[in-house]
Design a binder for these strands. Structure first.
Lengths: 347, 347
DNA sequence: TTGTATGCGTTATCAA
DNA sequence: TTGATAACGCATACAA
């Protein structure tokens, strides 16, 4: 049913957008006065202001933000770079970011990198070229040297889940060590000692931390760390199924997953292997996204205040942009254990 | 642990961004030549081009896209307005949109309206003021008159789930009538006749369609339409629990929900009422988002190719922008019945 | 092949 | 309280 529609900005729809000059002519004043009215400057006669406003409204005149930002050097745009917007972890954070930025008359320029390092690099460049007022950056892949080089170009920057002490940068970080530790300790206290862990891409900071927390808990309770119970997903969640099978073969009684979605795949794999969760095996997730509460059994998870994290990130950036307010260089978010039905005491 | 960090763009970090003029001076040519090199114009001597490129790379010069777009009238930005990015329905669509736009060197200016009509209005204005090259619009709330008035300002526009025949607009629409019809028919053929339906906000086009499909199926099979089995959620999914209770009181044997998340709440409510899904009651969802496959029982749902929809939307917009390619004024997406374990024959 | 002049739509500066 | 002039950084048209 393809028709011959072709979009043309033809003469009819041209009605060449009005400029400040047009309004000035109509009002019989200089364009400077229009500018003053638009910017609510005090030094303009009330009568003329009324008159100008009338004409502006009558013609629904809207100033070009591009032209304005050419001279003010501000775009009111914030670049938000993250790996994947369809991951509910990020989507919920972005919701918090967007609302807070909006409240500060800032807007979101969204960039998703799909974890490709080349894209992350070029997007930061792009943000610079668009002259954004600041950037929110979740870049698990980019190495520190590159990061340090790129940050000054788009600063201020708020980094999500990277702890980097650099000028013009602040960090909001989940304490994954604490999270990994708490989850593991919880399982140990439930009587488990053969505990598998499935981690995301190994280079990511949060994964290293999570693993450290896992080990810390084991060591604390005198349980030996077995390297073959530590699994890394390298690409995406499809690998989780296979890793779960391997862990089951090794007779684990519990599995810690690096996020809720991965935990869902773990449970699915267990079901395929005719294992009941939590009766035969306990599973704990990480992040507390919506899916965790609808899974059956409902997922025990280390829950994160994602929306609030987004707000915190945006608020920090706003303070940095304003430039006269103190801000946290490093904000640490602690996940909270939400005990539901996917875990059970080993009795 | 608040420290005294205050971000200042101080002298050190100033290193005033290079302009085309700086490069011109360094290269000993006019800024025109630089511009030609940047835009890959043929009419430039190979030697000077090499020379200029060397200097550009040496200083990592990047042209200001703002200044450029002042004269070209193109920003390469596409405004994407939708109600809620944390809704996986939209998030997955945006993923498709973003990838396709990126392939066309277009970028996403994200606006979320939280279904507030005032915000939708002002965001469209904003998109105009930023002079975006086009807009993708999912605005369930805005009435047709307003839409018609605003579209010319940001055209071309692709509308999601609105069928509006307007100049400069194309539409990508889910056939919710077909979806509602198919879901209901499926349940009827499973032996159900007392079927409840839970709809989203009633004014939304897709809900009206879905209801029509529901009725069509009932009528086709000679089953009377009972108005008190038709429920509307007016605000958010919290209402679903209550509506489910009401339907259960009316002895329905099956419930159709307007999306998967709502279906999840339905199942949760059923569980709270000590009803087993699907043994005591069948539940069917809509959209086939990730949560549907991890629910237990896995959700039977009318599945939508969300990522591909995003791609279609973006592709349509790109064709409109290019202006010399035909495009579909109306693309209809048909949901596909994905039978899983939340529905059962009434025996 | 290259350079000069002009303009895009605003705000900033300074003078009236 | 207002207006004239000069930026902002680039691309376009035209001349050399």
């Amino acid at each position: 049913m393809l028709n011959e529609n072709v979009h043309k900005k033809d003469m009819r729809s041209m009605e060449k957008k009005l400029t400040i000059n047009d309004i000035a002519r109509m009002a019989g004043v200089s364009r400077q006065t229009i500018s003053r009215v638009l910017n609510n400057k005090p030094e303009v006669n009330e009568a003329t202001r009324k008159q100008v406003l009338r004409i502006i409204e009558k013609h629904e005149f809207q100033p070009s933000l591009q032209a304005r930002s050419m001279v003010t050097r501000k775009t009111n745009m914030i670049a938000v770079l993250l790996p994947d917007i369809s991951n509910s972890f990020f989507a919920e954070i972005v919701r918090g970011i967007e609302r807070t930025l909006r409240a500060n008359k800032l807007h979101v320029f969204l960039m998703t990198s799909e974890e490709e390092i080349a894209l992350e690099n070029s997007f930061i460049q792009l943000a610079q070229n668009y002259n954004v007022d600041g950037m929110i950056l979740c870049s698990p892949r980019l190495d520190e040297a590159n990061l340090r080089k790129l940050i000054p170009r788009v600063s201020p920057v708020v980094l999500l889940n990277r702890d980097l002490d650099a000028d013009g940068a602040a960090c909001v970080v989940v304490d994954s060590l604490y999270g990994g530790y708490t989850a593991t300790k919880y399982l140990i206290e439930k009587g488990h000692s053969k505990i598998g862990i499935i981690l995301g891409p190994s280079r990511a900071y949060s994964n290293i931390q999570r693993l450290d927390g896992y080990k810390k808990a084991l060591v604390e309770f005198g349980i030996p760390v077995e390297d073959d119970l530590i699994m890394h997903v390298e690409v995406d969640n499809k690998g989780v199924h296979k890793l779960t099978e391997q862990l089951v073969k090794k007779k684990v009684t519990a599995i810690t997953a690096y996020n809720d979605l991965a935990a869902a795949y773990v449970i699915q794999a267990c079901t395929d292997l005719n294992l009941k969760v939590p009766d035969d095996i306990s599973v704990i997730g990480f992040d507390g996204s919506v899916i965790s509460q609808f899974m059956n059994p409902a997922l025990t998870t280390m829950s994160l205040p994602l929306f609030e994290m987004g707000q915190t990130i945006a608020n920090t950036l706003v303070r940095m942009i304003k430039g006269d307010q103190p801000f946290e260089r490093l904000t640490t978010i602690y996940p909270i254990l939400k005990e539901r039905n996917s875990t059970k005491s080993l009795s």
